[in-house]
Design a protein around this nucleic acid. Structure first.
Lengths: 119, 119
DNA sequence: CAGGATCCTTTACGATACTG
DNA sequence: CAGTATCGTAAAGGATCCTG
């Protein structure tokens, strides 16, 4: 009796799985995709704009997430010399590379919502 | 002088953003994508298999995330009548609809890793 | 306006030990 | 093997007040 050739899933796709893990290190959290999505389609936005747009987020969380994303170069933060100050947030070119991911999530989310109403 | 027609970003894309929010309600957390990705390419897998595959996860977390995902019908849990018991986890057809999302995350993660080494 | 500081509650997450 | 129980830390999340 022949033994099945063992398909070693352990090593074959570790690379891919580590990539997912690394990606989630940057992108995890309830709000990152939401903020990024909002910013991607809103262009330059101010703190208050984001706070209004993003339903349910607290100022503290928004502030913290924005800082994270600035550190990771996904967005830029620009302070304009007005009175009172204006601060603009914008997605960087690098941040834009996440757009396909967000598109897929949005697509899935839309279908998911549909399935909820069908039940 | 003509005034630009105001593109009302507030309402136009609320739908999409809510979809993202809903999706993240189901998929957020450090491990969901990782577990799902592992299970997608490993087929039927047992608890210990997953624990070994998924680097860094604790049994408690794995157990909890699996329960969540079972409730949300992303995976099935099958108990086989052996001694000691065998439990198999498998992605449902519905769970498979998340594959494109995971593919995009993996793709992005791979590029992200590359960019790390270039610095 | 754009937030930080403070206080408090609730989840998320993790390590270790134990059970059917 | 497939988990649960227990305990502890760290973040998430909310409310209110404060500052340049």
């Amino acid at each position: 009796m022949k033994k099945e050739p063992q398909l070693n899933t352990s090593s074959v796709c570790k690379y891919r799985m580590n990539a997912i893990k690394d990606a989630m290190e940057i992108l995890s959290g309830k709000w990152k995709f939401h903020i990024l999505g909002t910013l991607l389609q809103g262009g330059k936005m101010r703190f208050m704009d984001l706070l209004r747009e993003i339903d349910g987020i607290a100022a503290k969380m928004l502030s913290k997430e924005l800082q994270d994303m600035e550190i990771n170069q996904l967005i830029t933060r620009t302070v304009l010399d007005t009175k009172p100050v204006t601060v603009e947030y914008e997605v960087t070119e690098y941040g834009r590379t996440i757009e396909p991911v967000i598109d897929e999530i949005a697509k899935w989310g839309i279908e998911y919502r549909k399935s909820l109403y069908q039940k």
